[in-house]
């Protein structure tokens, strides 16, 4: 399983209600249901991924986050997760608000655009970074709202969102010392646990 998802799991209480925004093929939610007995629900817009998640026995609703989440009642979930989708939504700030309206806590993961490799790529080549991790060209990418760790934390401050926990994933699976100390420069993936 993806590293960011492994890090999230300890933050989710057994038996709690979890909404996974952009649940993909449901790998993470399925694992949470199997290992933590959560009551899970997923949102997904890709037809193939949705069917794959349904095949895992998950409850998944086809719904585009960009068209709002107003159909979910206030505080109806314990945790709302959005893994690697923040950079792909039209209004990341509104989605964050909605996550913390619907859930007691929100968990967000995103690729850190401030990573030194991105900076080096942009700084030396003067072109938008393309890598194994971010494989798209600027004109044809689902990722329309890249941000850095510092950008994200500034947004949380301006919105009065509390950061309960954060984890940084570096280049290697070893203890990410550099990413922990200077996340804006060394974190490949940032993981946040948020509340109001």
């Amino acid at each position: 399983m993806r590293l960011d998802l492994t890090r999230i799991q300890p933050w989710i209480a057994p038996g709690s209600r979890v909404l996974d925004l952009g649940c993909g093929d449901g790998e993470f939610l399925h694992r949470l249901q199997a290992e933590c007995q959560v009551r899970g629900m997923g949102l997904e817009i890709d037809p193939g991924q949705l069917t794959a998640a349904v095949s895992r026995g998950l409850n998944v609703v086809e719904q585009n986050m960009d068209e709002g989440l107003g159909n979910f009642p206030d505080q109806s979930f314990d945790t709302v997760v959005m893994a690697h989708a923040l950079q792909a939504v039209h209004y990341p700030d509104r989605v964050l608000d909605e996550m913390l309206r619907i859930g007691r806590e929100g968990i967000v993961t995103f690729p850190n655009f401030g990573h030194w490799r991105c900076r080096l790529y942009l700084g030396t080549r003067g072109r938008m970074p393309v890598s194994k991790f971010m494989p798209y060209s600027w004109y044809d990418t689902p990722n329309i709202h890249f941000c850095t760790v510092d950008d994200f934390e500034a947004l949380c401050r301006s919105k009065g969102i509390r950061i309960l926990d954060r984890e940084m994933v570096g280049n290697t699976e070893r203890r990410p010392l550099l990413a922990g100390a200077w996340p804006n420069l060394f974190a490949v993936t940032a993981i946040y646990r948020l509340s109001r």
Partner: peptide, 21 residues
């Protein structure tokens, strides 16, 4: 159908929904 799904979500019932092209 979305009205059905939204009511089920608000009623906290397990639901799966897809709009087929």
């Amino acid at each position: 159908s979305r009205e059905i799904v939204d009511a089920l979500i608000a009623a906290d019932r397990p639901v799966t929904y897809a709009e087929i092209e």
